[in-house]
Amino acid sequence: MNYEERLQSWVGRRLSEPRRGQDPVNVPMIRHWVEAMEDDNPVFLDEDAARATGRDGVVAPASMMQAWTMRGYKASVNADSAPPTGGDELVALLAEGGYTSVVATDSEFTFERELVPGDHVSVEERVESISPEKTTGLGTGRFISTIRTYRDANGEVVATQKWRTLRFRPAEKPKPKALRPRPAINPDNAFWFEAAKEHRLVIQRCADCKSLRHPPGPCCPQCGSFAWDTVESSGNGHVYSYVVNHHPRHPAFDYPLIVAVIELAEGTRLIANMTGIEPADVRIGMPVALDWIDPDPDLSLPVFRPAGPRSQT
């Protein structure tokens, strides 16, 4: 049997043996219910008022039907304590299809008579239909319709409930892309990242001997001067060296990732990613031109693409 046939084979089947409620219909539970609901209809707690309406005495709220057959605290918090039912098997089969989430969509009760204290209700549930896969706002899933039949101690039907749930695969929420690792910005290199935010590639220059240097530092490696200013790079250069990173992967990057040492026309070198080219096409010495990326609101970085007309990748 394929999956669809295995699913449809549940139609008409009983999900569990008839299950009797833990307790008969009783006034304390009715009182708890109507107080919590703030339902002041007197027929639930006041014998005289109930008789005045033509009833024999107090009755339970119709909407409590399901409450009389709930499993109770112990079975709810310790689901393994009860032997698996057909319902559990169907849930497992649905999970196999990826339908792991559930939401109830419809409940349709028909009541045959009012319940009175002393009634002991049992319930059984049969599968009425399993829909084809449908796409909903919550995700893709199947509507499972069942019929629950509620009976009193004599086996007489007191209510039926059509119950519809959607078992679905939660719609994938696009994960926010991870941020690139933050550059370690300090008073000596902050100017470089500030300029980058304005999409200007600057090079630090010694104010005394005029030699250029990168990465930024406080002191000229040529003459030892602490005085400096900057020049703006033309953005032209060539690939001095490169690696293609496949592993380990950081979630902020797309792989394979080209990490290149670019020698600028001005003579300094910097490490940057490349864009507009396949890793296999990168060559040492190839001319490149500056471009900019803004991976997130707080970060702009230079990247380099092959010089000349933009390649069609």
Binding site: D39, A49, S63, V103, S107, E108, F111
Partner: peptide
Amino acid sequence: ILTSNGLVERFVTGWAGPAARVKGIKIRL
């Protein structure tokens, strides 16, 4: 959901009075 059922029952019987007997509650959530 049981509470949603309970509140629609309260809403309707609160209007109709204690003599009303509830024969059906059909809700979509």
